[in-house]
Design a protein around this nucleic acid. Structure first.
Lengths: 212, 212
DNA sequence: AGACACATCTAGACAGTGTCAAGTTACGCG
DNA sequence: CGCGTAACTTGACACTGTCTAGATGTGTCT
């Protein structure tokens, strides 16, 4: 038997040294978050799910705040991926691309409600954390860039363009937040509609902040 | 001396029966919420602040969820009051009145960030609770009514009008949520501006969802 | 190859949390 | 005046996050 190769064999075994605990904890944390929500999130439950002792996470993330901060940073990367998926499927013109990142924003929120709440409505993540700040700024940068292309002015030097950025962000963020809290479903029953009809409604709304 | 009238004397004494614990707990809970935020909210800390034992709240609100549900319901009443204050100060035309409730919405969010989060971004309140549902529907009803006046169609029978409602709500909600999480401050420095300039920016943005 | 430094993980303890059950106090009604 | 019952206290329980000390591998250097 050539067995027991030192590096990364079957990970979930009961080896004393897990070998890849950091990522495994993040995966477990995301699952816990999806199942139980942000509010009843438990660090010990995450450790149990990953098959390690309750003290193990501390060594990789410091404390619960650290783990949730890392998870939120991953969330922003995931958000960007959802936006890029919509961009790839959209027409190449500037407006369609801007709307696409809005639709991706909503897609992400619906698909990951607890993660969305962690990223935008929680005090637990440390916003001064490097990875968190970098990922969240990258997501915001996409918006700024596409609004600039749309209105033809740099938001950082043109107050009107910055209002367009803020209006666009507020609209898509409010839309996503109200949808994933179930407050829109009661009014429009979006989940009952075929995707193209849902998209048409969202596009109509997402166009409003920038149509002068 | 006519003293020691049975009902409601000096409330905060160390009488075994507090006499008015329900409201006192709500007041303490709101203060705790404002100071510590939704996430590190502690029922025992609320009881301590109100000067009663840790088990006392259960008798009035059942459990923590019950207390927070009642508090959220009060929050909606407070939201409506903030909107009505803006309405009273605004011009009587339909559009000004609609914008006024938007400004009141933002006012409320900025003044009560933790309560706002409890009302809109938390799973803790029981939305099927009678008082909660009534108060939140009253707040929403204001919006529907004013959008209907603005666009001249009943949102419950006209899909376009309902899109106007959703767009208006999403815009003001997203705006408030992003402002109170500090994400707009970095971009526009609203807190540095005089109120009329801030209002002008917000009005510009709040008009967009309904200007065809 | 052997041994040592170090990162990794476990195990126990601590204060704090929400909730439950049982006991104590006092209000109000007869 | 006495008694039922609502209001409140107290103690216990399981659970939480964090800290500490100890156990266990991993990798490296000679």
């Amino acid at each position: 038997m050539t067995a027991s190769s030192p590096s990364a064999s079957h990970a979930a075994s009961k080896r004393y040294h897990h070998g890849d605990l950091g990522p495994a904890l993040l995966k477990a944390a995301e699952e816990e978050l999806a199942e139980n929500g942000t509010e009843s999130f438990s660090l010990r439950a995450v450790a149990k799910r990953a098959g390690v002792s309750h003290g193990a996470p501390a060594h990789h993330f410091g404390d619960a705040k650290g783990l949730l901060t890392a998870l939120a940073a991953i969330g922003y990367d995931r958000l960007i991926a959802a936006q890029e998926a919509r961009q790839a499927a959209a027409a190449p013109d500037k407006t369609s691309q801007l709307i696409a990142i809005g639709l991706g924003y909503v897609d992400f929120g619906i698909a990951n409600p607890a993660l969305f709440r962690l990223m935008f409505s929680s005090e637990k993540p440390d916003r001064s954390d490097e990875a968190f700040a970098a990922s969240s700024l990258a997501a915001f940068g996409k918006l700024v860039e596409l609004v600039q292309a749309e209105v033809g002015a740099d938001p950082y030097s043109d107050a009107e363009a910055m209002k367009d950025v803020v209006a666009s962000w507020a609209m898509v963020h409010g839309l996503a937040d109200l949808i994933l809290s179930g407050r829109i479903e009661r009014l429009m029953g979006l989940s009952q509609l075929p995707q193209d009809e849902t998209d048409a409604i969202l596009i109509d709304i997402l166009l409003r902040p920038i149509s002068r």
